[in-house]
């Protein structure tokens, strides 16, 4: 004979617990009293209203900060010697020792790249050499 399955017995679903008389009415009154005693009614505060927007802004700020930090940490720094070379280069350009600047590349006439050299008067060349090249360098050129 198959043993009885008590769980499927409808009687087991019946509630065996009871409560003191009038409990549920009393409970409702107690809850109402506690809620009234809590003072103000629950309101949706300003912070509650803007909470989703605040969360989004915070998320973007965090992502930006992490990205910025990662770039700062992992990007190799430009060394001081590079900076000084650049500065020196600019100085030469400014002083006119180099004929070509970045802008000049676009201005050069392809057929006349070296044309300027032939237009410099020989007196000017001599004067430049005598001012800028010492005697030792001149002797070594011979």
């Amino acid at each position: 004979m198959k043993p009885k399955n008590y769980i499927e017995d409808a009687r087991m679903k019946e509630n065996p617990f009871t409560v003191p008389n009038g409990y549920f009415n009393e409970m409702k009154a107690q809850v109402a009293e506690k809620i009234s005693a809590s003072g103000s009614t629950p309101k949706t505060g300003f912070i509650t209203v803007i909470r989703p927007q605040l969360a989004m802004v915070s998320a973007f700020a965090i992502i930006f900060f992490i990205g910025y930090a990662a770039l700062t940490i992992f990007t190799p720094r430009t060394s001081n010697s590079d900076v000084s070379t650049l500065t020196a280069g600019n100085q030469y350009i400014e002083e006119g020792f180099l004929k070509t600047t970045f802008i000049d590349f676009f201005d050069i006439d392809a057929e006349n790249e070296t044309g300027d050299i032939h237009t410099i008067p020989s007196e000017e060349v001599m004067s430049y050499i005598s001012e800028n090249i010492d005697i030792i360098t001149l002797t070594s050129l011979e």
Binding site: Y6, I7, R11, M12, E14, P16, F17, T18, V19, P20
Partner: peptide
């Protein structure tokens, strides 16, 4: 529990 009204089987079930 004074507020338990079930029989023995219900007690065992609980």
């Amino acid at each position: 529990d004074p507020y338990f009204n079930g029989d023995n089987t219900q007690m065992i079930f609980q």
